[in-house]
Design a protein around this nucleic acid. Structure first.
Lengths: 192, 192
DNA sequence: ATGTCAACTTTACACCGTGTCAAGCAAACC
DNA sequence: GGTTTGCTTGACACGGTGTAAAGTTGACAT
């Protein structure tokens, strides 16, 4: 659906690259220059900065095939390995969308559209958390006194992009360390 | 130091109130109107929005006496109760600075000064986390394979304002639930 | 060859929020 | 009375977003 228009594609690709490169202030004029078109032409394709960012997110998701990646975790037999697989799948996806998510998160306070888009994406992650928790519950492995919903909330908070940023960017953890430690933390928090 | 000037005080008080009320777009003109002075007079007291927000934060800290609150947790004998006390002290402080922190966090991406101010405050929290972890280690209660630094990082991430926002605002947890659950999570993650 | 359509260009401008500058005013202090 | 201090009003520059309008270019159709 987004591959129809070559210019649109080019905008999405270069915008993605620019966001992932980080550092540069990503204004509409920056995106336009990166795509080799005028700023106005950019507005011909995307009505606002928020919608452009949202489109880039969807584009990245399509290219990186996030659905397939998260689906992998659903293949695991028992709840515990399924949990580990989900933590790994999502945790390893975060750094790949770091640029887009940073831009989208920064707009949250000011732009309702960006807020909705970001919340929608996070809702999808929550679904994954809920599925992993449900698998644990089915195995009777969920810690006592922890409802499925509360467990889902906890896992969701643990796996937030903000947490990843803090641990990997602020604290300097490697991606490997992050995954290992999050798997361990999730296990200890959720398992009985 | 901040009580000398009555106008300055009034600005800080009304700005605080405005931020805590939430919702309203807190522009410089809003702060000025709330304080009953002109926008220019506001710039006579604070050179920029970032510095105003930082001053409000310090003001809140002074009024709420955050140091004394966190110091309480240092009184506990054993590491485990000390951990619980710290989680409670900081966790209960978060909602009181919600307004200011929201505004400061929203500026992070665009304003270096705001970023520095927020990071400074978070560094202070990290110190508290480190102290609690050190107490655990001294008691030999720290989980095996967990260095003090890594444990501190984990606790710090767990107790981030972002996590609080997600659990209490997005997921709708009560403050009571949040504290209880965080104490439990911290215990399970950090203890051996 | 001519017309027309689509995509893009250039130029210009409105709006908003931050921060700056300058002149004036009023009360306090000496 | 003169000066200082704290405020006022009013104007403006700047940066970024988004809008509007007129002109260019190339493809395609008849």
């Amino acid at each position: 659906m987004s591959s129809e228009n070559p210019t649109r594609r080019k905008i999405l690709d270069t915008a993605w690259k620019l966001l992932e490169a980080g550092g540069s202030p990503t204004r509409m004029s920056d995106f336009a220059r990166a795509a080799g078109i005028s700023r106005q032409a950019l507005y011909l394709h995307f009505p606002s900065r928020a919608e452009l960012l949202v489109a880039v997110t969807r584009h990245v998701d399509a290219v990186k095939d996030v659905d397939a990646r998260l689906a992998e975790s659903r293949a695991a037999e028992d709840g515990e390995t399924r949990l580990a697989a989900f933590v790994s799948a999502w945790g390893n996806y975060i750094p790949e969308i770091r640029g887009v998510s940073r831009a989208l998160m920064a707009m949250q306070e000011s732009d309702a559209e960006a807020r909705a888009a970001w919340q929608g994406r996070m809702e999808a992650v929550r679904q994954g958390c809920a599925a992993a928790v449900a698998a644990l519950a089915r195995d009777g492995q969920l810690a006592g006194g922890l409802s499925e919903e509360r467990a889902t909330d906890l896992l969701w908070a643990l796996l937030s992009v903000e947490s990843w940023v803090r641990l990997c960017e602020t604290c300097g953890w490697s991606q490997q360390e992050y995954i290992t430690e999050m798997q361990r933390a999730a296990r200890r928090i959720l398992l009985g």
